[in-house]
């Protein structure tokens, strides 16, 4: 009969087999956890390539990326100037227009294209854009109809309940007119 005063050499084998079992269970747990992560076909859609050459100045297109709308807006020089003229200190979420842009293949910022996730940072509605400036809000950017948040053409919150600027997705310019959304440029 086993008792409690066994030599340690005999305990060692039990510790070893117990530890080896625990390690095995640990390894097997990973597939059980990982299977809940997005599957390969979902991951294949994690990034999208977008040709923006046919957007007209003053217009925006909405692309669907990871189940969310992404606004790509071709801003007029006047709009860019208006966005640059804003006093950053007066903003709720302090960001310059340049901080919300990324450089093109030539290394220079491309201020004509503003790319932002079209989800209001208040409670997740999709803000409205109106090229005729009727429904786009007081700051001629976007207006969220749910609770009245006004964004400027840089996607920055100016008025209303939303706490943050429209989020900028990770993206990069493959060429001057082709974007990949979902991935930062490889430096």
């Amino acid at each position: 009969m086993a008792d409690t005063t066994e030599p340690t050499r005999r305990d060692f084998i039990h510790i070893a087999s117990g530890a080896a079992s625990v390690v095995g269970v640990g390894f097997f747990a990973w597939p059980l956890i990982d299977q809940m992560n997005p599957s390969a076909d979902t991951m294949a859609l994690a990034t999208i390539e977008l040709d923006i050459s046919n957007i007209e100045e003053g217009q925006q297109v909405v692309a669907k990326w990871q189940g969310k709308p992404v606004f790509i807006r071709y801003r007029t020089p006047a709009e860019i100037a208006a966005a640059d003229a804003v006093d950053v200190a007066s903003l709720r979420d302090k960001q310059t227009d340049d901080e919300r842009l990324i450089p093109g293949p030539d290394g220079k910022l491309k201020p004509q294209y503003l790319v932002a996730i079209g989800v209001c940072t208040h409670l997740g509605c999709v803000p409205l854009f109106d090229p005729n400036d009727e429904k786009g809000g007081e700051y001629r950017g976007w207006f969220c109809p749910c609770h009245g948040s006004h964004y400027d053409n840089s996607g920055r919150i100016r008025k209303g309940p939303a706490p943050k600027n429209l989020e900028i997705p990770p993206y990069w310019y493959i060429t001057d007119t082709v974007l990949e959304i979902g991935k930062e440029a490889v430096v």
Partner: peptide, 9 residues
Amino acid sequence: LLSLLLYGS
């Protein structure tokens, strides 16, 4: 390997 350990146990 685990079966060897358990057999030892």
